[in-house]
Amino acid sequence: MLDAIRSIRPLDILDILIVSFIIYRIILLIRGTRAVQMLVGIALIIIIYFLSGKFELQTLHWLLKTFLGSILVVMVILFQTDIRRALTQMGKASFFSNRNVANRDIEEIVRAATYMARRRIGALLVIERGTGLRDYLDTGHRLDARLKAELLVAIFLPASPMHDGGVIIHQGRIHSSGCLLPLSQNPAIDKRYGTRHRAALGLSEETDAIVIVVSEETQEISLVQKGRITAFHDEKALTVALKTQLASRKTPPRLMRWFNTRKNPASHA
């Protein structure tokens, strides 16, 4: 054991760190997409392959062996969209990027929601959190714009060609509009809720995203999370609820603090 430890070179440690980082980035890229389910299916096929060999199920073993023999080609075909996305995004996403929504962004969201509620403008705002929403981002119109209340209102005006669907806020920016969201199939949903609320519930049941729904009929603002709808009639209460969920920050890791110190040395003088 000690001989094995002594034989480890610094380059071996570097090699392990690089591979670990690549695996970590791949997990971030596929998180929240259909690729996760496909990977689970492939893993299940591999398990069945080994079990069929152990229990001497010759036909099944031969069939799976033939399939797995061309698994690299199959994976390229199945994951071509994710591979293309990964290559185009490589180098764009910062390792130290901050995914939290700032207080000023929350104020812009609340200001837009309350403005639209008073004027009976329906809206569907999605705030991405830990679970990636790339499958839904790709269904809309790419904007990649600064988060401003005026822009959100303009998107959801009835005359706007992008008012249908939801707006997804990704890393503090308006990433896409007109995004198609999954409708909840829960039969216990109150009948007074329409398509927007069902879409918000459907997304919140599948991801950890926070969804804000503005109803043009009731002028009600609803915050949807984890399959639950909470109605707000008070701007301050909505702001507090969003800040509780989004603005609270944990103590940054030591590496992050070191990076920030090197980046802004004057602020720590």
Rank of each mutant, 00 (worst) to 15 (best):
L2G: 13
I46K: 11
R9N: 08
S94L: 13
V240G: 00
P252A: 01
L17F: 07
Y193F: 15
I18V: 10
L203I: 11
K92P: 09
Y49I: 05
K236V: 12
R120Q: 12
Q245R: 15
R129A: 01
Y193H: 13
V36N: 07
R118E: 14
Y136D: 05
R119P: 06
I8N: 02
Q80C: 11
I229N: 06
L17K: 06
H197S: 14
T261M: 12
D190E: 14
Q89H: 13
V213E: 08
F50L: 00
R257I: 04
I121Q: 08
I221N: 06
G140A: 02
S184G: 05
I77N: 01
H163G: 03
G140N: 05
R104S: 12
R25K: 15
T207K: 11
K226Q: 15
L57Q: 06
L64I: 03
D190K: 14
V213W: 04
V36K: 05
F79R: 03
K243N: 15
G227F: 14
T230M: 14
L60V: 14
R192F: 02
N98Q: 14
L255A: 12
P253R: 01
L147K: 02
H170C: 03
V167A: 08
T66E: 00
M116C: 06
P253F: 00
G166K: 03
S215M: 10
G140S: 02
G32R: 10
P161G: 00
R249W: 03
F79S: 06
I23T: 06
G130R: 07
K243E: 15
L64G: 02
K191S: 11
D105I: 01
Q89A: 15
E108L: 08
I71Y: 04
L152F: 02
M256F: 14
H233S: 09
L68H: 02
V126P: 13
L157S: 05
Y115M: 07
P252G: 09
